[in-house]
C-alpha cells in the first residue's frame, strides 16, 4: 500500500467512445474515440496540466473523472480517507464521498451558473444535496468560502447577472471548494476571461491550492497558462496521451514530436519575430477516421514506416516520464528555452 501513499487518482485504460449515429433509425455507424486507452496517475497536492488542441479529448477526460460521462471502458481509482473508490462502480454512500472529494471548475463563467439561483443557493448546493450542511451552518460555510475566493458576504443573496466574468468565475471556484474537495478538475477556467482578469484567477487558484493542499487537474489549450500553473504536464493528441512528465523537462526537452510541434507554434514574447514560431502544415485527424498506427504520424516529420504499422504504446522512458513514440530515445527534439531559468517555484 505504500506505493499509493501520495497517489490520489489512478486512471487505467480509460476509454470514452461516442457512437456516431446516422439515418432515420439512428444506426451506429462508427465511434468517435474521444479518449482512447488513457492511463495516468495524479499525485496528492500536485497540479497536473492537461494540454492539447480542440478535439484531443482533454475535456472528455475531465468529465469522465468527475463522472459526468460514463466511461466506455477502463478503471479509475480514487484514494481518499484511507479508502479506495472504484469510480466506475460507486455505491450510494461511496458516491457521496466521491462528490465531496472531487469537484469541477467550468470554462464559461456565464453558462456555468444557474441565472435563476442566488449565489448562496448556487454555492450551497453541493452542501445541501450531499447532506453535508443545511440552514445556518450551510450559510456560514458558504460565507467562509465566498470570502476565500475574494468576494464579499454581502454578495450572497445576489443573482449571477450582477457579477462580472471574473467575479462569476470566483463564484464557480467557491462552489467547487465549498465541500473541501481533495481533487479539483479545472476545465479551461480562464479561457473565457478578459486578459486583464486571467491573472487574478490564476493567482487565486494557485493560492487556494497552496492553502488547502488541493490537487488540480488543470485542462487548457493554452501552453503558457499550463506552464504557469502546472507541476507535471500531460499532452494529449486525438484522444491519446502522447507525453506525460515533469513540467521543466517536458517544456525544455520534449520527447514526443507532437509536443515539439505544439511548443513551436506557441507565440513567443521574447523572440517575437517570425521564424521563432515554427509553422508545421497539417491538421489534427478526424476522430472518426483515425490513421493506422500512430495517430500523429500524418503530421509528424520524423514518421517512418513502423509508425503506420504499429501503434506506439505509452511507456515509461525514465522514472515518472511517459511517452508514446517508437523513436522517443533516438529523437532529439527542441522545446522552449526560457529567458531565465527560474523553474524552482
Amino acid at each position: 500500500m505504500n506505493v499509493y501513499k501520495d497517489m490520489l487518482l489512478k486512471v487505467e485504460g480509460l476509454c470514452k467512445y461516442f457512437p456516431l449515429q446516422r439515418g432515420f433509425l439512428r444506426r451506429t455507424v462508427g465511434y468517435i474515440k474521444a479518449v482512447d486507452n488513457l492511463s495516468l496517475d495524479v499525485r496528492r497536492g500536485e497540479v497536473l496540466g492537461v494540454v492539447g488542441e480542440s478535439g484531443c479529448g482533454k475535456t472528455t477526460l475531465g468529465r469522465c473523472i468527475v463522472r459526468v460521462y460514463e466511461p466506455t471502458d477502463g478503471q479509475m481509482t480514487l484514494y481518499v480517507d484511507g479508502r479506495e473508490l472504484s469510480l466506475t462502480e460507486l455505491s450510494g454512500e461511496e458516491m457521496r464521498l466521491f462528490r465531496r472529494s472531487v469537484q469541477m471548475i467550468f470554462q464559461d463563467p456565464f453558462a456555468s451558473l444557474n441565472p435563476r439561483m442566488s449565489i448562496l443557493e448556487t454555492v450551497g448546493e453541493p452542501l445541501l444535496v450531499n447532506k453535508i450542511a443545511s440552514g445556518r451552518e450551510l450559510e456560514e460555510r458558504v460565507a467562509k468560502v465566498i470570502q476565500q475566493v475574494g468576494l464579499r458576504v454581502e454578495h450572497l443573496r445576489r443573482y449571477p447577472h450582477s457579477f462580472s466574468g471574473g467575479q462569476r468565475q470566483r463564484i464557480g471556484i467557491a462552489r467547487a471548494l465549498v465541500v473541501e474537495p481533495k481533487l479539483v478538475v479545472a476545465d479551461e477556467p480562464v479561457s473565457a476571461l478578459d486578459v486583464s482578469i486571467q491573472a487574478q484567477i490564476l493567482n487565486l487558484l494557485k493560492d487556494l491550492q497552496e492553502q488547502q493542499n488541493l490537487t488540480y487537474i488543470f485542462v487548457s489549450h493554452n501552453m503558457a497558462v499550463i506552464r504557469y500553473i502546472s507541476d507535471r504536464i500531460a499532452v494529449m493528441y486525438a484522444g491519446k496521451l502522447v507525453e506525460l512528465g515533469p513540467k521543466h523537462e517536458l517544456l525544455t526537452r520534449p520527447k514526443h514530436p507532437y509536443t515539439e510541434l505544439l511548443l513551436a507554434a506557441v507565440p513567443r514574447t521574447v523572440e517575437r519575430r517570425r521564424g521563432q514560431r515554427t509553422v508545421t502544415p497539417g491538421e489534427p485527424p478526424d476522430l472518426a477516421h483515425l490513421p493506422s498506427g500512430c495517430v500523429f504520424r500524418t503530421r509528424c516529420k520524423y514518421a517512418k514506416e513502423r509508425c503506420a504499422e504499429e501503434e506506439p504504446q505509452l511507456r515509461e522512458l525514465e522514472t515518472g516520464y511517459f511517452v508514446s513514440c517508437h523513436f522517443a530515445e533516438e529523437l532529439t527534439l527542441s522545446g522552449v528555452a526560457p529567458r531565465v531559468q527560474s523553474f524552482a517555484a
Binding site: 486571467q198 487574478q200 503558457a224 497558462v225 506552464r227 504557469y228 500553473i229 514574447t269 517555484a345
Partner: peptide
C-alpha cells in the same frame, strides 16, 4: 499579467479590479 511560454516563471501581477 499574462503568462508566457518563454518569459520568467514568476508570480503574475494581475491588474486589479475589473473592467
Amino acid at each position: 499579467s499574462i503568462p508566457t511560454i518563454d518569459g520568467e516563471l514568476e508570480r503574475l501581477s494581475p491588474i486589479r479590479g475589473a473592467l
